[in-house]
Amino acid sequence: MSEINEWCMNIQNIVDDIDRCIRSGEDERLTLGRLSQTLGYSEYYVSRKFSEISGMKLRDYMRYRRLAFALRELRDADKGILDIALDYGFTSHEAFTRAFKAAYGITPSAYRSHPVPVILRTAIRPFDCYLLGIGGTGMAQTNSDIKAYFVTIPAHKFLHIRNYESIGYYDFWEKQSHIPGQDCETICGLLDSIKGKLDDMGGDEANSGSGHVMAYINEPEGRICSWGIPLAEAYGVRLPADYSGEIPRQMQIMDVPEGEYIVFEHGPFDFQTENSAVEAKIEQAMKDFDYEKSGYELDKTQGRVFYFYHDCRRYWKYIRPVRKTAF
């Protein structure tokens, strides 16, 4: 493993440790000295490498993550503002209010009364094989079978950004990074602040565990993909059909009618070593599936949406729209 990838792994371990400490209330363990000691390097060296890889100072990252956790409690719980402030390491209501307003441009009390979309500091993923553009770091084989089954998904809304030219996750975010306000950090931060996400399992990373999904929308203006369909790639969250909250200016929302889908699902896997193998296995399963025997066919109607769920702790899923075959 190269030195840069090794340090990406080291910083990823620090990031995971920070979130564990915040969730468990072990604030006293969140010190640079302890984090550095764990890695066996000096505080200065760890601070410098963290800044090089993440683009921000370690102490700033820890403060923004505390604020992100606190904001979710303001949005979703009935606990008092002072109690939330103290739980997340702030010494007073005033200190919390100053930090919160500096980060989000709104006071905690005003946000609680009207939870508008704001850009949260999501957990960074320095060791993300997608964003590193390497598709995985090993050739480990996965023994998990792919499950294929049909589901009916109720009507809902899809809040998202989309790109008509990108090819895959890495290329999508590379292209979006050149559009003001549509880079990965900004969009994921905004999506994290949206209340009512249908797929939110309480995760802290920008993946399906926190309700984020990649999608492929059948659009005539999209590029022709390997499935022979013109697709626009999109990234966003599914919301209830009656969602009426504020829409961030750089996003769009669409109504997705009730429909039938086929799901190709792989169980939990090791992100660092099995990602490529899982991807290859699930792609092969989709290619080999006998639609004729099932009585269904892929629904290639304009506007239909294919969903992609990626959360290595739970699963990898492709959800593709289908319709019954006419006889």
Rank of each mutant, 00 (worst) to 15 (best):
S54I: 15
R23G: 07
S276G: 15
F172R: 06
M254W: 00
N5G: 02
K197S: 02
A85D: 03
S144H: 11
I11W: 04
D270M: 10
I119E: 11
Y243W: 15
G136M: 08
E165S: 14
V237D: 03
K287H: 13
Q182P: 01
N275L: 14
A123N: 04
I262M: 07
F50E: 02
P321Q: 08
A110P: 07
G105F: 06
I247D: 01
A140D: 13
G236I: 06
M286E: 11
S193F: 08
K147W: 05
Y111C: 04
I84L: 07
E73L: 09
P268E: 02
Y64W: 06
E28C: 00
G228Y: 05
F271S: 00
A241V: 13
Y111D: 04
L39D: 07
Y315K: 15
D311G: 01
M251L: 10
G259H: 03
E94H: 09
R238T: 11
A102Y: 04
M201T: 01
Y315T: 08
G228K: 07
E165L: 14
T97Y: 00
H310K: 10
Y309L: 14
K300Y: 08
A102R: 14
G245C: 09
A103E: 15
T325M: 13
Y44Q: 13
S92P: 04
W7P: 03
I179T: 13
K49R: 15
D270N: 15
I4F: 02
R48V: 12
F327S: 10
G303F: 07
S24A: 12
M286F: 12
G189Q: 06
P154I: 12
F327K: 09
K293C: 08
R304E: 11
G228H: 06
K197F: 00
K101R: 15
F172E: 03
E52R: 10
D204R: 10
P248T: 10
V256R: 02
C8I: 06
D200E: 00
L35K: 12
S208W: 05
C225K: 07
P180L: 09
G259L: 04
V213Q: 09
Y149K: 07
Y111K: 08
R323Q: 11
H310N: 14
K281S: 10
G209Q: 03
K324E: 12
A110E: 15
E165N: 13
A206E: 01
K197L: 02
K293L: 14
H160I: 06
I229H: 01
E174I: 11
G236P: 05
K101P: 00
P268T: 02
P117F: 06
P154Q: 10
W7I: 03
P126M: 04
Y64Q: 13
Y169G: 05
R162I: 01
Y169F: 14
F269G: 03
S210Q: 02
H178P: 00
E174H: 13
S54M: 13
A103N: 04
G222N: 05
T325N: 06
C21H: 12
L30Q: 01
W7Y: 10
L71A: 11
V278R: 01
L86W: 00
M1W: 05
I119C: 09
S177I: 04
K197A: 03
Y88K: 08
I217A: 00
G135D: 14
R66T: 01
